[in-house]
Design a protein around this nucleic acid. Sequence first.
DNA 1: CCTCTTGCTGTACGATCGTTCAACAAGGGC
DNA 2: GCCCTTGTTGAACGATCGTACAGCAAGAGG
Lengths: 232, 232
Amino acid sequence: MARPAPKPRFARQPPPVRRQALIEATIECLKRYGHDGLSIRTISAQAGVSVGLINHHFPNKNELVAAAYRHINALLIAGMQAAIARAGKSPRARMRAFLEAWFSAPSLDADALAVWVVFWGLYRHSRLIQRVHRETYQDYVNLLRGLLAELLPPARAPRNARVRGGVRGTPSAPVDLRLAAIGLTALLDGLWLEWCLEPGRFRPAEAVELCEGWIAQLVRRASAAAGTNAAV
Amino acid sequence: MARPAPKPRFARQPPPVRRQALIEATIECLKRYGHDGLSIRTISAQAGVSVGLINHHFPNKNELVAAAYRHINALLIAGMQAAIARAGKSPRARMRAFLEAWFSAPSLDADALAVWVVFWGLYRHSRLIQRVHRETYQDYVNLLRGLLAELLPPARAPRNARVRGGVRGTPSAPVDLRLAAIGLTALLDGLWLEWCLEPGRFRPAEAVELCEGWIAQLVRRASAAAGTNAAV
DNA sequence: CCTCTTGCTGTACGATCGTTCAACAAGGGC
DNA sequence: GCCCTTGTTGAACGATCGTACAGCAAGAGG
């Protein structure tokens, strides 16, 4: 008992490490408690630190929240890119890998959606969130557009494509890569949203199937327009 | 000046009228201030009443919020139904009317999305919101499914439809009305979401066009499967 | 082992939150 | 014109919010 039990009351961490821990605690709190979890006290408790520490590493709460938003964005995109890279070189396999990664954990998680939705709710009134969104959402769209471009015949890009009015009965209109990416993004986001809000309504495999149907239809139209059979 | 200027300091309202006014004030506050607008003081100021009145007409704040969620749901569905009714009897015209109503004001409004998103953020942690969602979302899905059913040939409904594994290259698989409705819902929601988050990326007419393309493709497949030419 | 830097703690502060409640007064019924 | 019902007010309460800041102590450098 000579030694006074030198158990340190806390352990110092390098700023980057601590910042990362705080960011992850923020996301965990959002998962657990929704928007109510976005409080300095809740987050610092989750991270196991005192209330004052957050303002030592971040100028204010909004900056921490924006950093957390940036983190989940980056995580999502990195996950998708990894899945694609694992799939090899075949454009079809890469697209399929992307879809399957999109419609399975950890992307397809009701808790995760709850987190995203809180950020979207902040979007309109937080310039910080808006900036992060602009910076990262573009990456996601580009990723998707790249996958589509691989898949479609390398036809002349329809630059400045003005859509002809009333496309009702013209199934062989030239494929607009921009619109195609927008549509696929919408389908992905919409299915993701639906599944998270009510997981019982359909199975993830069915969502993949719906997307592949959309893409197959796209490839068919593109091939017809190009007059070739480039796509299998 | 004999009369002491009998200007009443407030005007009484029948409870249903006042309740409705408070509900609309809640939505207005959400539009204006996002989640921060969901405070008793902000809402009562918007409605022009005192802080105590809300708890006189609603047992607590959560009930008011749930009532507001129910209100915007009902409003949306009523708007769509009205647009459809105005379109007459032709299934194609009705579907088109629906799409155009969906992708124009007041549905397609960035402020409106901000309101929805806040409610979705509450969804996971509020039993009240969950109940309202269940009760009203079903109406929306049924509306959409009805429109689709009108449009597709009256083929035998694929009950208990088990999706065949790996539908990769079978474009003439029987059309599953359930999956079709799910896909169209996702496309609608996704495009709506995208447009509201970044209105510059595409025009509402392009969204309508994307949806009509999806539906046309569906009709084509259904016709092929039925072996008829029922749909023009 | 002492020193110095700095990551970290925890109290304090003012603002704002949702809710309660006693008192007020608007306005219809007689 | 008075009464009575009840819609409405607004002060007060305790809890919790984000931030500031003075001081503690961990742990590397000498």
